[in-house]
Each structure stands twice: as C-alpha cells, then as structure tokens.
C-alpha cells in the first residue's frame, strides 16, 4: 500500500526520488502545504475509487493517517 501512496506523492511533488515512510508528517515535508494536500487527497480518491469526508480530509496530518484511513475504508467496502 505504501508504495502506491509513495507513487502519488512522487507525482504530486514531481520528485522521482522522494521516499516516504509511515512517520512522514505534513508539518515536516516542506512541499506538503494546503494546496498539495488537496492534490494528494484527490489523487488518492481517484486511485482507490473512494471519497473522503470533510472530517477525514481535515484530520490527515501524516502518511500514517492516510494508510490507516485507507485500511479502514477498504474494510468498510468489503
């Protein structure tokens, strides 16, 4: 899962060498501003064919938050 998310981050930031880990936080990644935040969320929504609620979108602050949320939404779908 994290490798797909990493691909999205690389595309959004146009940086082929970017490595993300579970611990990567938006406050620490320089380019992860509010504009990039929307780009990431929309790319995730498109990639996994799902929609985030306002609360979910608002509460994502790290890669871990993204992975947890994807896991949860995948379970809900089953």
């Amino acid at each position: 899962m994290i490798s797909i998310v990493q691909e999205i981050f690389r595309d959004v930031f146009d940086n082929e060498e970017l490595i993300i880990t579970k611990e990567t936080k938006s406050a620490e990644l320089k380019d992860w501003d509010s504009v990039a935040h929307i780009d990431i969320l929309i790319a995730l929504e498109n990639e996994f064919s799902l929609k985030f609620s306002i609360e979910e979108a608002y509460n994502i602050k790290s890669v871990k938050d993204i992975l947890d949320l994807l896991e949860k939404k995948k379970l809900n779908k089953l």
Binding site: D11, V12, F13, D14, D39, A43, N46
Partner: peptide
C-alpha cells in the same frame, strides 16, 4: 483529468 491533475508539475515542465 485524473492524470493531468496528478502529474501537473511534470506536464508543466515539459
């Protein structure tokens, strides 16, 4: 739209 959106920085560059 999905591709353009996701790769917009790269597309802009080329």
């Amino acid at each position: 739209s999905k591709l353009i959106q996701r790769k917009k920085k790269f597309l802009r560059k080329i």
